[in-house]
Amino acid sequence: MTQILSLEKVAMRIASFVGVRGLGLGLAAWVGMSATLAAEAGLSGYQGAWVLEGRDCAEVYSSGGKGTSFKKPLDIFAPAFIVSGNRLRTPMASCRIKSVRPTGDRQILALDCANTVAANEVTVLMAIAPNGVLRRYYNDQDPTGTTYQRCSGK
């Protein structure tokens, strides 16, 4: 009888541990999902295909049934990118946008990027101007940034 009681206590402790562990994993998943949703919410103005101002969108992008994509053959040096959901793609890399944080009139995007040879974290400073163009800044002291025009999206 004593063995049965101690086995029941062990089972209860295991159930309690698993429940707490499961709650922790559930909270971690919820926090991760919340961060992703927050990043996507902060990205609404960035959605679409962008190219350096002055370049022709038709030289870089093609439109198809699934939306806009980079034209083939791929110009790996094209100053262009596509934001779709929480993904940012360039001709050579694919990035997951981990977070979007405001800093003054700009936003800091934290990215996890990968290409055919490496993966790394990248920080980008950008802002949507009142006239609808996007400016990418090299650092906090950059007063003008580089201007991109929207080719499709939003």
Rank of each mutant, 00 (worst) to 15 (best):
G32E: 14
M33D: 11
M33N: 10
S34P: 07
A35P: 00
T36C: 12
T36H: 14
L37G: 02
A39P: 05
E40M: 08
A41W: 15
G42R: 06
L43T: 11
S44E: 13
G45A: 13
G45I: 09
Q47H: 14
G48K: 02
G48Q: 06
A49R: 00
A49M: 03
A49Q: 03
W50I: 03
W50A: 04
V51K: 00
V51D: 00
L52W: 08
L52R: 08
G54I: 09
G54E: 11
C57L: 07
C57D: 09
C57Y: 09
C57S: 08
E59I: 04
E59M: 06
Y61F: 15
S62Q: 10
S62Y: 05
S62R: 10
S63T: 07
S63Q: 13
S63D: 14
G64Y: 02
G64S: 02
G67A: 05
T68D: 11
T68V: 10
F70L: 04
F70N: 01
F70G: 00
K71I: 01
K71H: 02
K71W: 02
K72Y: 12
P73L: 13
P73T: 14
I76M: 05
I76Y: 06
F77G: 08
A78N: 06
A78L: 03
P79W: 02
A80T: 04
A80G: 01
A80S: 11
I82E: 00
I82H: 01
G85I: 10
G85L: 10
G85S: 14
G85E: 13
N86K: 13
N86V: 14
R87W: 04
R87V: 09
L88S: 02
L88T: 01
R89W: 06
T90Q: 04
P91H: 04
P91Y: 03
M92R: 14
M92F: 12
A93K: 13
A93W: 02
A93L: 04
S94T: 15
S94R: 11
R96F: 06
R96M: 08
I97R: 06
I97P: 05
I97N: 07
K98H: 08
K98G: 03
S99I: 13
S99M: 10
S99L: 14
V100C: 04
V100M: 09
G104V: 11
R106Q: 12
R106T: 06
R106Y: 09
R106E: 09
Q107V: 12
Q107S: 07
I108V: 14
I108G: 01
L109H: 03
L111S: 04
L111M: 03
L111C: 03
L111G: 03
D112M: 09
C113H: 06
N115C: 10
V117S: 07
A118W: 08
A118K: 14
